[in-house]
C-alpha cells in the first residue's frame, strides 16, 4: 500500500493553481540515481521538488552537494512531476558553506522514475546580457564564485571594450537577502558587495583592461527581501562606457 501511495505521489501532476508560486527554503538535498542521469531533489514541507539533473559546468544548473545544506529558490512549474518531484523553474541553488554531515541521502534508481532528457538552456542563472556593453552576473548566496558563464561574459565585455574604443568599465556590486517560505530572512554577509565587485574588477584588469579605466562601486546595503526575485539581487553589473 505504501509503495502504491509513493508511486502515485511520484507521478501525480502539479496543480495549475500552484504554478508560479515561489519557494525558498534551506534543506539537505537528495540525489536519486536513474537509468540515465542522476536527479537532484529537495524535500520541503512534505513535498519533493525537482531541482535538476547532473550536468557539467557548461550547464545552467550547478548541482548541490551532499554534506551541505542547500538554499533553493525557485518558482513552481505546472505539469507532470519530473523525476518524482515538482519542478522549479527558474531555480537557483546555493550550496551552504558549512558542512552538514546529516546531508547524505542517496536514493537508488526506481522503476517509473526517470530523469528528463538533457536540454541545453541559456545560463540565465548566472548571467544576463543586455547589449554588448551591459552584463549582469549573478551569484550563489554568500558566494563570489564566477561561473564559466560569468567568466565568459567578462571575456566578451573586455573584447567589446577593446573593439569599441570605450573609455571605461563601471563595475557595481550588490549583496542580497532572501525571504524564505518559512517567513524567515537570510541576509548575505556584510562586505560581500565589495568583494564581488573587486573580484570582477581585478578580473577585468587581468584580462587586459587598464586599471585606471575600471571603476568600482559597492552597494553593501542588502536589497530588501521580498520572495520571488530575491536571487537576482546577488549580482554585479558590468557596464562598458
Amino acid at each position: 500500500m505504501r509503495i502504491l501511495l509513493a508511486g502515485l505521489l511520484a507521478v501525480s501532476p502539479v496543480w495549475p493553481q500552484m504554478a508560479g508560486s515561489h519557494r525558498a527554503f534551506v534543506v539537505c538535498p537528495e540525489i536519486r540515481d536513474t537509468k540515465t542521469s542522476p536527479c537532484w531533489l529537495a524535500e520541503y514541507s512534505g513535498e519533493t521538488y525537482f531541482l535538476g539533473i547532473q550536468g557539467g559546468v557548461a550547464e545552467d544548473f550547478y548541482p548541490p552537494q551532499l554534506e551541505h545544506q542547500v538554499l533553493v529558490e525557485g518558482e513552481v512549474v505546472a505539469g507532470p512531476r519530473v523525476c518524482g518531484g515538482i519542478p522549479l523553474k527558474p531555480v537557483k541553488v546555493s550550496v551552504m558553506q558549512e558542512i552538514d554531515a546529516s546531508c547524505h541521502t542517496m536514493l537508488p534508481a526506481q522503476d517509473g522514475i526517470e530523469a528528463p532528457p538533457r536540454v541545453r538552456v541559456a545560463p540565465d542563472s548566472w548571467v544576463k546580457t543586455e547589449g554588448p556593453g551591459l552584463s549582469t552576473l549573478y551569484f550563489d548566496f554568500d558566494n563570489d564564485f564566477l561561473s564559466l558563464h560569468a567568466s565568459g561574459a567578462l571575456i566578451q565585455a573586455v573584447a567589446y571594450f577593446k573593439k569599441s574604443g570605450a573609455a571605461r568599465i563601471e563595475v557595481a556590486g550588490y549583496r542580497g537577502a532572501t525571504l524564505l517560505s518559512s517567513g524567515a530572512t537570510l541576509t548575505e554577509k556584510a562586505g560581500l558587495a565589495r568583494v564581488r565587485a573587486e573580484k570582477v574588477a581585478e578580473t577585468l584588469v587581468g584580462l587586459g583592461v587598464p586599471r585606471a579605466a575600471v571603476s568600482v562601486q559597492a552597494v553593501d546595503n542588502p536589497v530588501p527581501a521580498k520572495g520571488a526575485g530575491d536571487a537576482w539581487n546577488r549580482r554585479v553589473v558590468v557596464s562598458v562606457k
Binding site: I31, D33, S37, P38, W40, Q54, G56, V57, Y62, P63, P64, Q65, L66, E67, H68, M106, S147, L148
Partner: peptide, 19 residues
C-alpha cells in the same frame, strides 16, 4: 561510479556526488 567528496571536483558545479 560515484565520485564523492573530492575537493575541486565535487565542489565546482558538478555536484557531490557525481556519477
Amino acid at each position: 561510479f560515484w565520485v564523492k567528496n573530492v575537493g575541486h571536483i565535487n565542489s565546482i558545479g558538478l555536484g557531490n556526488p557525481a556519477k
